[in-house]
Amino acid sequence: MTNGKLEHVNITVSDPQRSAALLRDLFGWHIRWEGPSMSDGHTIHIGTDDDYIALYTNQEVRADDPMFNKGEPMNHIGVTVDDLDAVEAKVIAAGLEPFNHGDYAPGRRFYFFDWNGIEWEVVSYN
């Protein structure tokens, strides 16, 4: 039997520097790699030593493009944290709006949309 482990998720964003700064601030992640990528684009890999989010953009990506609306089939990206309240305060300080708070077994959680319409779920099992 082979056990798989998620290594990364690749998402398109309008401003990878801004998105990377938010993820670094919220989750304590670091930039693992940054450089040119396909279609004359630019990518930042941000995460831990074991896994990461790839933030991709190119000159055709615009924040006002309808392709950035929350879409199918991806619903959200979930991240676990130790201190849910501290992360929520940082989300608010970034000008983003937490919603759909849930305090139920086995943990507490909230959601927010980033500037690209990507939905994030932040959950704590502490």
Rank of each mutant, 00 (worst) to 15 (best):
residue 27 F to P: 04
residue 109 R to M: 13
residue 26 L to T: 13
residue 99 F to G: 00
residue 91 V to W: 08
residue 60 E to V: 09
residue 83 D to G: 08
residue 25 D to P: 00
residue 116 N to E: 14
residue 35 G to D: 11
residue 118 I to Q: 07
residue 39 S to H: 15
residue 66 P to D: 08
residue 60 E to C: 00
residue 55 L to A: 10
residue 105 A to L: 06
residue 74 M to Q: 13
residue 24 R to H: 12
residue 52 Y to E: 06
residue 73 P to C: 05
residue 122 V to H: 08
residue 20 A to N: 06
residue 93 A to E: 09
residue 72 E to L: 14
residue 53 I to Y: 10
residue 75 N to K: 13
residue 17 Q to H: 11
residue 67 M to G: 06
residue 74 M to G: 02
residue 78 G to N: 12
residue 42 H to L: 06
residue 42 H to R: 15
residue 105 A to N: 10
residue 71 G to S: 15
residue 3 N to G: 06
residue 116 N to G: 09
residue 65 D to V: 06
residue 123 V to K: 09
residue 86 A to C: 01
residue 79 V to C: 14
residue 102 G to L: 10
residue 47 G to E: 14
residue 71 G to I: 05
residue 66 P to Y: 02
residue 93 A to C: 03
residue 76 H to Y: 10
residue 53 I to V: 15
residue 97 E to H: 07
residue 123 V to T: 15
residue 11 I to C: 06
residue 57 T to H: 12
residue 89 A to V: 04
residue 45 H to T: 00
residue 49 D to F: 04
residue 46 I to P: 01
residue 32 R to K: 15
residue 48 T to P: 00
residue 82 D to P: 14
residue 29 W to T: 03
residue 40 D to H: 02
residue 15 D to R: 07
residue 39 S to T: 12
residue 29 W to F: 15
residue 85 D to G: 13
residue 39 S to V: 10
residue 84 L to F: 07
residue 34 E to T: 11
residue 87 V to C: 12
residue 112 F to S: 01
residue 55 L to N: 11
residue 82 D to V: 12
residue 19 S to I: 12
residue 83 D to F: 08
residue 14 S to L: 09
residue 46 I to E: 06
residue 85 D to C: 12
residue 84 L to G: 04
residue 69 N to P: 01
residue 13 V to F: 01
residue 98 P to E: 11
residue 98 P to I: 10
residue 23 L to V: 11
residue 5 K to A: 05
residue 7 E to W: 09
residue 28 G to T: 05
residue 83 D to A: 11
residue 89 A to K: 15
residue 27 F to W: 03
residue 61 V to E: 13
residue 31 I to A: 10
residue 99 F to I: 01
residue 81 V to K: 09
residue 113 F to S: 03
residue 52 Y to Q: 07
residue 108 R to T: 06
residue 26 L to W: 15
residue 114 D to N: 09
residue 17 Q to V: 10
residue 103 D to T: 06
residue 93 A to T: 00
residue 67 M to I: 13
residue 73 P to T: 12
residue 56 Y to N: 03
residue 36 P to H: 02
residue 115 W to C: 01
residue 16 P to S: 12
residue 27 F to R: 08
residue 51 D to F: 15
residue 19 S to T: 14
residue 101 H to T: 07
residue 82 D to H: 14
residue 120 W to N: 03
residue 12 T to N: 05
residue 102 G to Y: 09
residue 117 G to R: 07
residue 71 G to C: 08
residue 1 M to Y: 07
residue 42 H to K: 14
residue 41 G to M: 13
residue 24 R to Y: 06
residue 56 Y to S: 00
residue 121 E to W: 01
residue 15 D to E: 11
residue 59 Q to G: 14
residue 57 T to A: 03
residue 88 E to P: 00
residue 3 N to D: 10
residue 21 A to E: 14
residue 100 N to R: 14
residue 67 M to C: 03
residue 99 F to D: 01
residue 34 E to F: 00
residue 105 A to I: 01
residue 64 D to C: 05
residue 77 I to E: 02
residue 80 T to Q: 06
residue 91 V to T: 01
residue 2 T to K: 09
residue 57 T to G: 06
residue 87 V to A: 09
residue 19 S to Y: 04
residue 61 V to G: 08
residue 55 L to T: 05
residue 52 Y to S: 11
residue 66 P to M: 03
residue 88 E to T: 03
residue 20 A to Y: 02
residue 78 G to L: 04
residue 122 V to G: 04
residue 118 I to T: 07
residue 78 G to M: 14
residue 90 K to T: 02
residue 62 R to P: 01
residue 107 G to C: 12
residue 38 M to Q: 14
residue 80 T to G: 10
